[in-house]
Design a binder for these strands. Structure first.
Lengths: 198, 198
DNA sequence: GAGATTTAATATCGATCGTTATGAAAAAAA
DNA sequence: TTTTTTTCATAACGATCGATATTAAATCTC
């Protein structure tokens, strides 16, 4: 009943995601989005709703398709390996595509107009969620004797995330993968070791 | 010869700086700027030139008035103290004003429209300049035996800057000063020690 | 095939963006 | 005081923003 859609919604979403990745939420205009997706404006509205909803969908897809290494990292056997997986995979992702360096979640909307506040909040919440899961993973490591009893697990998780965010900023500035790997090395260079540990 | 200016240029610049700090370059509109400065649009243009020039002036003032701790840190006696000064002062600055958390230089324009490319480049260049001076300071430390011969000074400088950038991102997200100090602690716990060192 | 329903494409909406004429107000120079 | 020069404030500029009304095309049901 009715005409069929002539474009692939997922393909359009992927193209829109790349635009947001490069330009952030407010920096990406519908002119950019229609050009990248090959889909006219009203069709984008019909398929996704407004710009904020489209960004939300792009953000979900980003987490699923690009940040999948994060939940996977939490399943590494030791806390150090968890941290290493996060850092090195972040470096790889942040330098993988020359045209969209850095991380959508970080420079999507660090700052912007008041109108972008809900989007900014959504990204902050998503980051907080990831950091919380990392914190909990480190608490588990402490229980297992993988981390010293005195470890501030919240601070350790915040530290790893801070380095990851910093790597995203530097990747956007054009830093080489080699340099960013070295930054990750340094972050891991003195991982707190448990007396019971290896 | 002619009428006098009725507003203080430096005061207006300070007010504009705060707007850019909060909203970034493209997020700050002239409506915001006139409201914050109390100066009408044409007067801002007359005093500073266009928006890009105004941001440039604000950026200069930011480096002079707020990031002055950075060149000062380079004069600390040891590389570890240099790094500590940078990190803890960055935490303090990034959490000093509840209304403008984070760092103007970082979230000023991480992403944005193509029109903001020159501004983005200027901020990247300014960051690179600071990082280069830190790198050189670490090379000096290596010569003095304060850092091990094998130290990758460029990576070490990039690491400190990465943590600083990450702290800025987290400060913008509302992290407490205590938490960010703990992040800085963790970053410094990885500090390489020289065999000749203390 | 006829009518109903959904999508596609053009063109445009009001609002806001950065920027600037324009003319009144103020202060120095004559 | 008159003239000249600079600033101030109102208003509006063209361009672009996100979002739609409208009409033609396509595909369903009957």
């Amino acid at each position: 009943m009715g005409r069929h859609r002539e474009f692939d919604v997922d393909e359009a979403l992927d193209a829109a995601l790349c635009v947001f990745w490069r330009k952030g939420y407010e920096g990406a205009s519908y002119t950019d989005l229609t050009k990248a997706t090959g889909v006219e404006r009203p069709a984008l509205y019909s398929a996704f709703g407004n710009k904020e909803a489209l960004f939300h969908r792009a953000m979900e897809r980003y987490y699923e398709h690009y940040l999948h290494f994060f939940p996977a990292a939490l399943e590494q056997p030791t806390s150090r390996e968890v941290a290493a997986h996060i850092l090195y995979n972040a470096v790889e992702l942040n330098t993988r595509y020359p045209d969209q360096r850095g991380c959508l979640g970080i420079h999507g909307v660090l700052a912007g107009s008041d109108a972008a506040e809900p989007v900014r909040r959504a990204l902050v919440d998503a980051r907080a969620k990831g950091e919380k899961s990392l914190h909990e993973r480190f608490e588990q490591a402490k229980k297992e004797g993988d981390l010293p009893e005195a470890t501030n697990c919240a601070a350790l998780a915040a530290f790893i995330m801070a380095v990851t965010h910093g790597i995203a900023v530097q990747a956007k500035a054009g830093f080489s993968r080699e340099m960013l790997d070295a930054v990750a090395d340094q972050a891991l260079s003195t991982w707190p070791s448990s007396p019971k540990g290896p």
